[in-house]
Each structure stands twice: as structure tokens, then as C-alpha cells.
């Protein structure tokens, strides 16, 4: 009973957790825009602290689970929703009654997933799994994650890739954040109006933030 709704609940909860994570992630990334010497120390210390904390370890499992659940239930929901409309309209002007992103969350989600795969390969695989080129230590003995980031963003194509994909992320978050609250049963009228604004501001901050940092690092 209510399988479809339960799927949506999981989607909303995992989505909201990821939204929270993005705030922390972006705050840390902001360290990258300090002058090189400061940035390197701060960033490497921060990432070492994270790696060594048990609490963060637990959180990171939540994070992996959230990504997997979010993707999996989005896939299930999309498949079942598509089945509910087996025949499409010849002409359908969805742009006149809804936003493009709300109509294409699945497509946007796939782009973001693609991004996550590349992103994990670039960082997580190297730093945590030790795959690929070895990560050296900085002069304080911390893994030089700053160097990993900096060198990646000296590559023009990666900068373009990271910056461009901040757009779909923003669109996804803008629709996703407010919808998640509605899925979870938040129905206060005034509150929802406020939430729509908060979603917009949040999506702007996250996407502009993530989009700009690679460019700033590139020109450093």
C-alpha cells in the first residue's frame, strides 16, 4: 500500500539530506578562493579532519546511501510515472503552465549523476581509494588535497565541465527543495510562498558558488 508515496518520501528525505550536504561542501570549497598558501593549509587540514572523524564517517555512509537511494527511487518513480502516460500528446505546451525544470527533473538528474561520477573519479577515487596518481603530502603531513583540486582546475576542459554542470544542479535544486517539503506534507500557504523564495536563493547560491570556484581557481 502507498508504495508510490513511500518512494516519494524516500526521494524527498534523501534529497533534503543532499541539500544540506551541499551547503557544507560549498562552504569548504570557499576555502579554495583564499590566497594560495592560506588556502592550501586550511583546505588540507579541513579534509584531514574530515577523514579522521568517526562522526563524519557515519555521515558519509548516510551520504552514499542518500545518493544511491535518491537515484534508485528517482528511477523507479520515473519509470512508473511514464507508464501512467503511455501515449504522449502530439502538441504539448508545458512551458505555458509549468517550468522547464519541473518537467525535466529526470533528465537533469541524469546530468547531475554523470557529474557525480566524474567528480568522484577525480577526487574520491584518488584520495580515499588511492586509485590513479598518488596524492602527495603537504609540509604539515596532510594529504595535499588542495594540489589535487588546483591541478584539476588548471585543465580548461574540467573547468568548463564543472562550471557548466552547476546549472542543471541549480535547476534541480530549485524545483527539488520546495517539492521535497510539499511531498513531506508541509502545507502552510504563507510558508510555502516563503519556501519558494528560499529555494530560489538556495539554488542560486549553490549553483553560482560551485560554478564560479573552478573559474576562480583556474585564473589563480
Amino acid at each position: 500500500m502507498h508504495l508510490k508515496f513511500i518512494r516519494k518520501l524516500i526521494l524527498a528525505l534523501s534529497g533534503l539530506f543532499l541539500c544540506l550536504f551541499l551547503i557544507v561542501h560549498l562552504s569548504a570549497n570557499c576555502l579554495l578562493i583564499f590566497p594560495e598558501a592560506t588556502a592550501r593549509v586550511l583546505y588540507n587540514t579541513y579534509s584531514t579532519t574530515l577523514r579522521e572523524s568517526t562522526f563524519i564517517k557515519v555521515i558519509s555512509y548516510f551520504l552514499y546511501a542518500s545518493i544511491i537511494l535518491h537515484v534508485w527511487y528517482a528511477l523507479l518513480t520515473t519509470i512508473s510515472n511514464r507508464k501512467s502516460k503511455p501515449q504522449k500528446y502530439v502538441v504539448n505546451r508545458t512551458n505555458e503552465n509549468s517550468t522547464w525544470s519541473s518537467q525535466n527533473m529526470g533528465l537533469i538528474g541524469i546530468l547531475i549523476l554523470l557529474f557525480i561520477v566524474v567528480h568522484l573519479a577525480n577526487f574520491w577515487a584518488r584520495i580515499k581509494l588511492g586509485l590513479g596518481e598518488e596524492v602527495l603530502l603537504d609540509k604539515h603531513g596532510n594529504k595535499d588535497v588542495y594540489e589535487v583540486t588546483y591541478s584539476l582546475f588548471q585543465n580548461f576542459y574540467f573547468v568548463i565541465f564543472y562550471s557548466l554542470l552547476a546549472f542543471p544542479l541549480g535547476l534541480h535544486l530549485h524545483h527539488g527543495l520546495k517539492s521535497a517539503f510539499k511531498t513531506l506534507g508541509f502545507y502552510h500557504k504563507k510558508g510555502l510562498e516563503l519556501l519558494a523564495k528560499v529555494s530560489l536563493i538556495y539554488a542560486l547560491i549553490i549553483s553560482v558558488g560551485f560554478g564560479l570556484i573552478p573559474i576562480i581557481v583556474y585564473f589563480k
Partner: peptide, 8 residues
């Protein structure tokens, strides 16, 4: 299907 709040 389930609602995805497109608002249409």
C-alpha cells in the same frame, strides 16, 4: 502516477 509538483 505520483505527483512531482510541476504545478501544471
Amino acid at each position: 502516477g505520483s505527483c512531482t509538483f510541476t504545478g501544471a
